[in-house]
Computed example of a mutant assay.
Amino acid sequence: MRPQLKGLSWERAGDRLRLVYDPRDQFLLADPDGSVEKLLTLLDEGGRTVEELADVLAADVADVRAAVEALDAHGLVEDGDRLGGLDPDEAERHFSNLAFFESFATLDRSREDLRRRLRASHVLVLGTGGLNSTVIPHLAGLGVGRLTLLDRDQVDPRNFARQYLYRWDDLGARKVTRAAEWVRAFDPAIEVDTIDTSIDGPDGLAELVGRTRPDVVAAGIDQPGDVDLWVNQACVRHGVPFVRGGFLVTTGAVWSVDPGISACRACIPADPVDVTAYTDPDEKTLNAISAMRLHLSRPQHNRGIGPVVGLLGSYAAFEVLRYLTRFEPPAHAGRPLVLDFANGCLANHPDEWQRNPACAVCGGR
């Protein structure tokens, strides 16, 4: 291991050093004899082991190791031995991705390690319209190595309010075919498989997840009505995380399921208007059930516009990224992020799903 300083700046403030990597944070370190600044200078140069650093500094190896570990705990160093292994063309293509991952790199996990994880990853994308028409370009931009795209529809004029994968000349074409062509044209290094079919039951979906063996499922389909429960069941059975986003009139949500860790979709009432699914519901819950029942009594219309699906799709793609790299824990696992499009796009986590030990899908896992 050869610890290397990240893009850190520092200045002397009396007998202390002010360190800044991210402007949101700063560190003030006591350095009356200048030894800390000498260590930072050597780490900035890189290429030395802890033992070699101690030799140059004429310091105890244990003290230098403790100092490096303290810097690592604050996300200020990574292992230089884990850098420089990417092909120059790949490093150039992913210049910005690598710069982003630098912020989350450690001595145990470099920015290039995170890039390699994405290259080796496979995402099953259920639906290439609506939400996922934003998710797919983000996954392609990140350089996810393999995408399996599923859709059953053709391109029609209504799609153009929000689905920018397609062009007017694509009217009448199969969506999944055009989406795959877009990805291949964007980055030929990405492997793309297509499945032009509908989801018609839980068994078929479970077979699909088991056969394709993705690392994550990005779910963006809402028909038939029970499809979320089918995806949930298939993914929990096979231990595959899945990410879902959607919206209702002026409220959007993004949530995910981390099998065996978070609550799953089956842990909460499946039918939003079934009052018997709630134990001793209070007045607020009863009123919410009544409002949903009235709303669902009328035909539903797709109100998705570009900014709406763009926001939701970006949040969903970020959650997929968390699962693929684990650069940070999933943010919305059993904890839906709710966006209020009638209130300045305010985003919060108002509720958290509780794991049900007796859940027929995830109980006991």
Rank of each mutant, 00 (worst) to 15 (best):
R2H: 08
Q4F: 09
L5T: 11
L8Y: 09
S9Y: 13
S9R: 15
E11N: 14
E11W: 14
D15Q: 14
L17P: 10
L17R: 12
L19R: 11
P23A: 13
R24L: 14
D25C: 13
Q26R: 15
L28M: 14
D31M: 11
S35A: 14
V36G: 04
E37C: 12
L43D: 04
D44Y: 01
E51I: 08
V56T: 14
A59G: 00
D60M: 05
V64C: 02
L71G: 08
A73C: 05
L76V: 10
E78V: 06
G80V: 03
D81Q: 12
D81A: 12
L83H: 10
L86P: 10
L86Q: 12
R93K: 15
H94G: 12
H94P: 00
S96Y: 15
N97D: 14
F100P: 02
E102S: 13
A105C: 10
S110G: 14
S110M: 09
R111L: 12
L114W: 12
V123G: 04
T128V: 14
G129E: 03
G130A: 08
L131H: 02
T134M: 05
I136P: 00
L142P: 04
G145M: 10
L147S: 02
L150N: 06
R152T: 09
D153L: 01
Q154C: 11
Q154A: 10
P157D: 07
A161T: 12
R162T: 07
R162V: 03
R162L: 06
Y166A: 03
Y166W: 05
D169G: 13
A173G: 08
K175D: 03
R178W: 05
E181W: 03
F186T: 07
A189Q: 15
A189S: 15
E191T: 15
V192G: 03
T194D: 01
D196H: 15
S198L: 11
L205S: 07
P214F: 10
D215R: 12
V217I: 11
A219W: 01
G220P: 00
G220N: 03
D222A: 02
P224C: 06
A234K: 03
C235V: 02
V240P: 04
V240M: 09
P241E: 05
P241Y: 08
F242L: 07
R244A: 09
F247V: 01
L248R: 13
T251A: 13
G252V: 03
W255I: 06
S256N: 06
S256Q: 07
P259D: 08
A263G: 08
R265F: 14
P269H: 05
P269M: 03
P269F: 02
A270G: 09
Y278P: 00
Y278N: 00
D280S: 13
K284N: 11
T285N: 06
L286F: 02
N287F: 00
I289Y: 07
S297A: 15
N302M: 05
G304R: 03
I305K: 07
A316I: 00
A316G: 02
A317D: 08
Y323V: 01
R326N: 15
E328P: 02
P329M: 10
G334M: 01
G334W: 01
R335C: 06
L339H: 05
D340G: 09
A342K: 11
A360N: 00
A360D: 09
V361N: 07
V361K: 01
C362Q: 09
G363F: 02
R365T: 15
